[in-house]
Design a binder for these strands. Structure first.
Lengths: 223, 223
DNA sequence: CAGAATCCCATTCGATACTG
DNA sequence: CAGTATCGAATGGGATTCTG
């Protein structure tokens, strides 16, 4: 039997540079996207697959094992009666968020970036944290629920911070519901009127939704 | 004849998330390290190889072609009599610096990171820009020359900013010379006395060197 | 020296099928 | 659901050769 392939080769680059070490940990295909999916909380194997269109069970298994060896991911046994296994980021894994955000922010500035591709609910939530205009968000508070393709999130804006957690939307000031994340992206980043987007429904304080949505914008393209 | 293999597959991940697009551009092995090496200015093919221990000519050729197609790198023909070809980052490529820095900063917090591996001169210079303590640097100015393994850089600290350019060291307030970057890293990050590091020489205003060196520190490890 | 082209092998990927 | 097993295809990377 072969060794289970090590993500942490340690000899990939033979370079003391931190960036090189980061690439040894999350530089394999899919690895960083797995981390992204876990950024908003633990997930089960099949939920991970759901957020990563196209990843195979084999590769996901390998990546999770590698990330676990590297100390980015932890496997957790949920107590009965759930009896399910979930994958969670470690403390260090959680700290990767700024790096993920900077990569996203950078890529979004390329004219070649196509924002029309499928978008996972987590991607959209993460993009809100990335693209929040913190100047404009000064003195704004909001409690917004998102229900996207069966997943529920709660974003609470205060003090220019925007924590987002997996949590039932019930009780939020505004709730956005959509079968796909792209609809909500259209309403926020393209400034489209929610009424024009079939499938999207905004319930609750609509005025508050508009105020919230205006706080996000994509970075300008270069060139 | 085959298509020259596209770095910009566009179908790698099929994901609108900016991070996923970034990975399509710089997610292949070595790609981001090539970008790192170019971050301080254009280089020739063989200089790139020098800073990337272990990359083969074939792979470097492929990555440069892919990065050029993606709009990260530009090929430039130097005017005669130089008659050399160099690779430079595009405007967008240059904007990748924060992402590279965040990845490095994150990786440096892992207990598993081994800073004893070989370090390219560019890596060290980039790490200074990353690890500068901008609070401590308030009201400090400095003009420091680095001559490492034949490459010369000039770092000018002012207004908490630290531009570093390839430029002769002559005329700087302090000049650090060393055959390998690791020696200078030891003097800065490990706080070692330059006098104890054989091969390292600091000339010029030594007091200024100490003030400068104290402005840099590695992030705390997690766990 | 600066690459492009070729050959070749090891590793990795990804689709499908299978199992507890 | 949560993975394993398997296999063909794609990619990675070393060595060598060829060119300007």
């Amino acid at each position: 039997m072969e060794l289970p392939k090590e993500t942490l080769h340690g000899k990939w680059y033979d370079d003391a540079c931190g960036t090189a070490f980061a690439l040894e940990v999350i530089g394999e295909r899919w690895a960083l996207l797995v981390v992204r999916e876990l950024m908003l909380g633990p997930l089960r194997f099949s939920d991970l697959r759901g957020g990563l269109p196209g990843i195979s069970a084999k590769i996901l298994t390998e990546r999770l094992a590698g990330l676990e060896r590297a100390g980015v991911v932890q496997r957790r046994q949920l107590p009965p009666p759930a009896a399910a296994q979930v994958y969670a980021l470690t403390e260090w894994g959680l700290l990767a968020e700024p790096a993920i955000q900077e990569l996203g922010r950078w890529a979004a500035r390329s004219p070649a970036h196509d924002p029309q591709l499928p978008l996972s609910p987590v991607s959209l939530m993460m993009s809100l944290r990335t693209m929040l205009d913190r100047k404009a968000a000064r003195d704004v508070t909001a409690d917004v629920g998102f229900a996207i393709a069966g997943q529920e999130f709660r974003a609470r804006l205060a003090d220019r911070k925007l924590p987002i957690v997996r949590e039932p939307v019930a009780g939020a000031e505004v709730i956005a519901r959509a079968p796909q994340a792209a609809l909500i992206a259209g309403a926020i980043y393209d400034g489209l009127d929610p009424a024009d987007l079939t499938g999207l429904s905004i319930t609750g304080d609509l005025r508050q939704w508009r105020r919230f949505a205006r706080l996000f914008s994509l970075p300008p393209k270069v060139g």
